[in-house]
Design a protein around this nucleic acid. Structure first.
Lengths: 224, 224
DNA sequence: TCCATATTCAATTGAGTTATTGAATATAGA
DNA sequence: TCTATATTCAATAACTCAATTGAATATGGA
């Protein structure tokens, strides 16, 4: 009956699996607080805070105590505070590791130089690279590099999983001074991918007389 | 910039928030394993195991090493194994606490005696108790106790949240020898609710000439 | 080169989660 | 009793996750 325990552990980790609730716990780690005080401290709406607190209570990570109009919540025990610091420490270590990797790559030299326009087309065709258009979708529809997928920054993290790990990612946006592609590259690298930005952007591509696609041959992106 | 870290911690706990993945980690804690070996050990399909392993890899909880046809996965570090035991220990303690509470209540006497038919109707009307019909939905539709909600066992855990904590829960099923209601009561108590079963079941209720409802006045249950 | 095999991908389906909104409930005090 | 206030409830819409299926990819050996 090992499953029973896994279920229980998962109930607990599920309650922890939300940045909001982690923040709530952090607040409660400082001491007992009313719902409103918690909401204030975290910037959540009162109703939302209340619901999150109930999730935490069902997982027995916090306890509530009603006194007059107020319900005072607090951590359910020292082991909860411990758990919180343990999991945070592991996350910090992982994060530091990622940073270290990135720095190492960056120092390695031209592996992470921006990509030139000339190289790109052939490498897209060969499947060696995946080109991401990280501009808003309307701009993509109005014209984009052939074979590029429309992946606005907001959905990149989610879509990343659907892109083969071995492919190198090349992101582009509106031009050399637009930062969208830089953000995309940073995120992709943080997830362990090889990623570069196109040295300039789509306007320059078009201006150079290179081919442009206006219909999307794989709607929502061939990958997912 | 505290949010950045909460996001990171949540990425990690999200990866842990699945009984399947916890089981995978447990297997990998014993040593390096190929995808197929992991699938075998856990009873998951290979594709499913592979996907879960990738989630774990994105969270940097495991690492993969390709060798020939096989990819060998292993835990990403000692801190992962530690985290795993820490979170399990907390869950165990919570679980034990719940058991203790239940036992305490049970020993307290008639608070947890089954409910008699006579008492029930008045208490439903007063809102003092919530009556749950835990039989399959077809049976509920064919006739049930007035005011009862249809909550088959499979969805009970989910629906429980929508039932006010202060209300006592009374569950019934097919009769005194049917165990559905017992399971429901056990689950509800494990979630910290006051819950009892009806001493017998619906057939006896009907046989006693008590009122029966056949249309559902609050479809899918008035609560959620 | 072709084949067998381990793994991953891509799409789909159903289920669960989150934030938001407005209403309901409960309590203290006038 | 009525009122003001803290909290919770209920419903909804948008998003995210899990399992399944069949196809695609990569590798080692015949």
């Amino acid at each position: 009956m090992k499953h029973r325990l896994y279920e229980e552990v998962a109930r607990l980790t599920k309650a922890l699996a939300s940045p909001r609730r982690l923040e709530l716990l952090e607040v409660l780690a400082q001491g007992e607080r009313s719902v409103e005080a918690v909401a204030q401290a975290t910037g959540l709406s009162v109703a939302n805070a209340s619901q999150h607190l109930q999730v935490l209570r069902e997982a027995r990570l916090v306890e509530g105590r009603k006194q007059g109009l107020f319900v005072h919540y607090r951590l359910a025990g020292d082991d909860v505070a411990n758990l919180l610091t343990t999991v945070t420490r592991v996350a910090e270590r992982r994060l530091a590791e990622v940073d270290r990797l990135i720095r190492k790559y960056r120092d390695q030299g031209d592996e992470f130089e921006p990509v030139g326009r000339r190289d790109l087309l052939a490498r897209v065709r060969s499947g060696e690279v995946v080109v991401l258009d990280v501009r808003p979708e309307e701009e993509y529809r109005a014209g984009h590099i052939p074979g590029a997928l429309s992946v606005p920054l907001a959905v990149l993290d989610r879509r990343l999983r659907a892109i083969p790990r071995k492919a190198e990612i090349v992101a582009y946006c509106r031009g050399p001074f637009c930062l969208l592609a830089d953000d995309a590259v940073r995120l992709a690298r943080a997830r362990g991918r090889r990623a570069r930005r196109l040295e300039d952007g789509f306007p320059e591509w078009r201006a150079a007389g290179l081919p442009v696609e206006t219909e999307d041959p794989r709607p929502e992106g061939g990958y997912r």
